[in-house]
Amino acid sequence: MDVRVKICGLRETAHVAAAVEAGARYVGFVFFAKSPRNVTVGTAARLAATVPPGVAKVALVVDATDAELDAIVAAVPLDMLQLHGNESPDRVAGIRARFGLPVMKAVGIAGPEDVEKIALYGKVADQILVDAKAPKGAAVPGGNGLAFDWTLIARKYWPCPWMLAGGLTPDNVAEAIRLTGARQVDVSSGVELAPGVKDAGLIRAFVAAAQAAA
């Protein structure tokens, strides 16, 4: 079983290079002003230009308008849009049609009642990011370093590929893969020294742990 890794919230060229060299299959850039991982369109364009073919470049947005997405897509050579807000299924389908890029929709999980949303969004998105639901009042919808009960999604199957996120670290990613059967995993805060400050050593350790779990 091959496990594909996404390193999200990248802001520095050295950390993009570390992710690529370690074997990550996706790199993510955050466009959300409240996030400590937020980057400008210009910075993202510069970082994306260093990513070799075969590694998907993903833009994370939160309830972005068409105008905001137009500006990002026009400047940054992207392979995927990640919708991490309260986008409805219709909005997801509309963005997918308008921009002609694969769309990944994040679904926050806190309890069993949230799991059914995965199948709902799986009908309109190309991929689902199964993440921990942000606590009430949180400033950002993801990247909070929180995990959820992985048994809620253990060995389940949905209409499209999915990726596991939420509180993953080099120390627990292998167990998360074992419990859920995830073929793809996403990390942001779990490879940081402080919010928004990535560490190349942690990036390498996370990718190695995920791939060893395969």
Score class of each variant (00 low, 15 high):
residue 126 D to C: 08
residue 148 F to Y: 08
residue 115 V to N: 03
residue 84 H to P: 01
residue 152 L to Q: 11
residue 102 P to M: 13
residue 118 I to V: 15
residue 155 R to L: 11
residue 108 G to A: 10
residue 105 K to M: 07
residue 156 K to A: 05
residue 84 H to N: 05
residue 127 Q to H: 15
residue 144 N to M: 12
residue 115 V to E: 07
residue 110 A to S: 14
residue 93 A to G: 04
residue 105 K to E: 08
residue 101 L to T: 12
residue 133 K to S: 00
residue 118 I to W: 09
residue 131 D to H: 08
residue 102 P to S: 14
residue 129 L to K: 05
residue 132 A to T: 11
residue 97 A to V: 04
residue 98 R to P: 13
residue 105 K to T: 11
residue 110 A to P: 11
residue 153 I to L: 03
residue 112 P to G: 02
residue 147 A to I: 00
residue 118 I to G: 06
residue 140 V to M: 01
residue 90 D to I: 11
residue 109 I to K: 01
residue 119 A to F: 00
residue 113 E to H: 13
residue 125 A to P: 14
residue 151 T to E: 10
residue 89 P to Q: 13
residue 95 I to G: 07
residue 145 G to Y: 13
residue 122 G to H: 08
residue 106 A to S: 09
residue 148 F to E: 02
residue 119 A to V: 00
residue 90 D to N: 12
residue 115 V to G: 05
residue 137 G to P: 05
residue 98 R to I: 15
residue 158 W to L: 00
residue 125 A to T: 14
residue 151 T to M: 08
residue 157 Y to E: 13
residue 128 I to H: 05
residue 123 K to N: 12
residue 120 L to I: 15
residue 154 A to Y: 05
residue 144 N to T: 10
residue 142 G to N: 02
residue 91 R to E: 12
residue 131 D to N: 08
residue 141 P to C: 07
residue 125 A to N: 12
residue 92 V to M: 06
residue 105 K to G: 08
residue 102 P to K: 11
residue 159 P to C: 00
residue 96 R to H: 14
residue 139 A to W: 05
residue 88 S to A: 09
residue 88 S to E: 07
residue 92 V to P: 04
residue 99 F to P: 06
residue 143 G to N: 01
residue 138 A to I: 10
residue 125 A to K: 12
residue 94 G to K: 12
residue 153 I to E: 00
residue 85 G to L: 09
residue 112 P to W: 06
residue 89 P to N: 12
residue 150 W to S: 01
residue 143 G to A: 02
residue 144 N to K: 03
residue 112 P to E: 07
residue 114 D to P: 15
residue 92 V to R: 05
residue 87 E to W: 00
residue 153 I to G: 02
residue 125 A to H: 13
residue 100 G to M: 09
residue 128 I to K: 03
residue 87 E to H: 01
residue 108 G to S: 11
residue 136 K to F: 01
residue 120 L to R: 15
residue 115 V to D: 05
residue 102 P to Y: 13
residue 140 V to C: 00
residue 123 K to C: 11
residue 87 E to V: 04
residue 149 D to F: 01
residue 127 Q to S: 14
residue 118 I to Q: 06
residue 129 L to E: 06
residue 92 V to A: 04
residue 100 G to A: 12
residue 140 V to A: 00
residue 134 A to L: 10
residue 144 N to E: 08
residue 143 G to V: 02
residue 128 I to N: 06
residue 134 A to M: 09
residue 101 L to P: 10
residue 111 G to C: 13
residue 158 W to F: 10
residue 98 R to E: 12
residue 89 P to K: 13
residue 114 D to T: 15
residue 113 E to V: 12
residue 150 W to L: 01
residue 97 A to F: 03
residue 93 A to M: 08
residue 91 R to L: 06
residue 126 D to H: 11
residue 105 K to R: 13
residue 118 I to E: 06
